[in-house]
Simulated scan of single mutants.
Amino acid sequence: MALVLQGATFLHQYLGSLLHTHPSKSDTALKLGVLSSAQINPAAIIRPVETHPDVILYRIASRDASTAAKAAKQYHFAKSSGSYQELLDDPDVDIVYISTPNGLHYEWASKAIQAGKHVLCEKPFTANASEARALIDQAAQKGVIIEEAFHWQFHPAAHVFRQILEAGPHGQILRTEAIMTASPGVPKGDIRWQYDLAGGSAMDMTYALSFTRYALRAQRPRTVHSVTARRSAEDPRVDEAMYAYLTFADPSGHEVHSRIYTDMARDWVGGVVPRFWELPSIEVETEKAIIVFYNAMMPHLYHYIAVTDKTTGKTRYHRQYRGGPLWGSVLTSVGKGGQSHWSTYRWQLEAFVDAVRGKAPAYWIPGDESICQMECIDTMYQAAGLPVRGTNADKGD
C-alpha cells in the first residue's frame, strides 16, 4: 500500500544514514540543487546523496525563504534559496532534482535546462506528452542530461524480474495485471487531488503503468478496450481511481492483454481494515507460468518474484538486493555490484551520476520512454472521458 511504503522508506533511509558510514566526498563532486521542500526529498535524494562520494548537498530552494533555510540546516546543505530561480541562477549548481507538484515539473525542468543544469525530475515526468516531448528536445539542444525518476527500474530486483520473463522456458507472455492503491487513502486536501497541479490516480500511481510497459518492453497500447474512472466528488476532472484494459504488443509483435488498476482511496476490508498488504505489484501470465513481482515499487524494503509452474503448481521465489544481471559486473562508486542496503533511489542516483559524468550507466530510461509513458496516460484519460492534465478544461458534470 503506497502510503505505508512511503513511510517505511523514510524510516529505512533514516536508519541507513545512522548505521552506515558516509564516504568522503571527491574534490570534484557534483553540486546538487533541490527544487522544493517536498516531503519525499529525504528518501528520494538527500539520503542517497549522503552515501555517494561524487555528489554534495549544495543548495535547496523553496518558495518560502525560511522553509528553505530550515531544510538546509536540518540536512546540511551549504546554501538555501527563497526562490527556485535563485537556485537556477547559481553557476555552481551542477545537477537539479525537481520534486515540485506534477503540474510544475515542465516549467522548472525547462528553466533548469535553459540554465545548463542536468535534471533528475520526479515522476510523472510532466503533465502530458506534449510537455514531455518539449523537455526531451530542449535537453538535447542544450546538451544536458534529463532523467525521469522511475527509481524502481534501477533496482537489481527489477532486472532479475525482466530476465526471468525473457529467459525463454516460461514461454510467451499472455497477460499482465498491475495494481497500485492507497488504503488508507491519500488525505483530502493533498496536492494529488488538485487538477491544476496535474493530480489524479493515474498520474500519482503511474507506477502500475510503468510495471506493465517495463515487463513487455512496450510503447503505446495497440488497443484500448476500456478505461473507467471513479471521479473525485470534489473535482470530477480528477480520477480517484482508474481501471484500464489495454492490449500492448511485445517486441516480437505478440499481443498481450493488460489490466491496470490505480486507486488513491482504496476501500477497507469490511469497512474497518485498511489493505496494508496490497503493495504495488504486477502479475504476469505466460504460456507455462504465473510470475508475480510483489512490491515492485520499493523492492529495497521487501520483495519477492514468485514463479509458479502451471503444470506442477510448484512456486520458486527469487530475491535480489545487489548485483544481478546489470549491476553484477559494474564497479560502482563504493565497490563492485553496489550495496544490498541501497534503496531504489540510491541505485538511480548511481546511474544518474554516471550519465552526467559521461559514463555508460548500468541502466537508463531513454527520453523516448518518458514520452511514451505520458502518451499512454493521456490516452487513458481521453478514453475515460476525462481531460488530459495540463489542459484548460472546465469542471466536468
Rank of each mutant, 00 (worst) to 15 (best):
Ala178Pro: 08
Ala178Arg: 11
Ala383Val: 08
Asp309Ile: 00
Tyr345Glu: 07
Pro184Gly: 01
Leu5Ile: 14
His159Ser: 12
Ala69Lys: 13
Tyr195Leu: 03
Leu120Val: 10
His318Asn: 00
Asp239Val: 13
Leu35Asn: 04
Tyr243Lys: 13
Ala132His: 09
Ala198Lys: 04
Gln219Tyr: 09
Met205Lys: 10
His170Ser: 06
Ser83Ile: 09
Glu177Ile: 04
Glu240Val: 08
Val34Asp: 15
Leu165Met: 00
Tyr363Ser: 12
Asn392Leu: 12
Gly143Ala: 03
Gly270Lys: 05
Gly82Lys: 08
Ile95Cys: 11
Tyr321Gly: 02
His105Asp: 04
Phe154Gly: 02
Leu35Glu: 09
Val388Cys: 07
Lys310Met: 06
His254Glu: 08
Leu197Asn: 06
Arg222Trp: 03
Ile377Tyr: 01
Pro169Tyr: 00
His341Asn: 12
His225Leu: 11
Ser329Arg: 04
Leu331Ser: 15
Asp250Lys: 09
Thr100Phe: 03
Ser110Phe: 15
Ala351Cys: 07
Tyr304Gln: 09
Asn102Glu: 02
Asp263Leu: 04
Ile46His: 09
Arg220Asp: 14
Phe352Lys: 06
Leu18Ala: 09
Ile365Arg: 13
Ala218Val: 10
Leu246Ser: 10
Gln373Gly: 03
His76Phe: 03
Tyr345Ser: 08
Ala2Gln: 02
Val160Pro: 02
Thr391Arg: 08
Glu148Thr: 14
Thr206Phe: 10
Ser110Trp: 15
Phe125Asp: 03
Glu375Arg: 08
Ile95Phe: 05
Ala215Ser: 15
Gln348Lys: 05
Thr391Lys: 11
Lys395Phe: 08
Lys142Phe: 07
Gln6Ser: 12
Leu19Lys: 12
Val256Gly: 00
Pro299Leu: 06
Pro280Phe: 05
Tyr106Arg: 12
Asp368Trp: 07
Ala71Glu: 15
Ala249His: 05
Tyr321Asp: 09
Ile98His: 03
Arg192Ala: 03
Leu209Ala: 06
Glu177Ala: 06
Ser81Tyr: 05
Arg316Asn: 10
Ile95Thr: 11
Pro53His: 03
Ile179Lys: 11
Phe211Gly: 03
Ile291Cys: 01
Val49Glu: 11
Ala134Arg: 06
Gly335His: 11
Arg266Tyr: 05
Gln85Ala: 14
Gly189Phe: 00
His318Gln: 04
Tyr345Asp: 11
Thr9Arg: 10
Thr379Leu: 15
Val334Cys: 09
Lys288Gln: 00
Ile290Phe: 00
Asp54Gly: 07
Gly171Arg: 01
Tyr214Ser: 12
Leu301Gly: 01
Cys376Ala: 14
Ile60His: 11
Ala69Thr: 15
Leu3Arg: 01
Met180His: 04
Trp108Asn: 03
Gln39Gly: 14
Arg192Asp: 04
Pro124Leu: 14
Gly199Gln: 11
Ser370Trp: 01
Thr311Arg: 11
Gly171Phe: 02
Trp268Asp: 04
Ala393Asn: 13
Tyr294Pro: 03
Leu120Asp: 13
Tyr381Leu: 11
Thr312Glu: 05
Ala2Trp: 01
Asp92Lys: 08
Pro156Asp: 01
Glu166Trp: 12
Ile145His: 02
Trp364His: 12
Ala127Trp: 02
Ala362Gly: 05
Pro184Thr: 01
Pro184His: 07
Thr176Ile: 06
Leu279Lys: 13
Gly358Leu: 13
Arg357Asp: 06
Lys31Trp: 05
Arg322Gln: 14
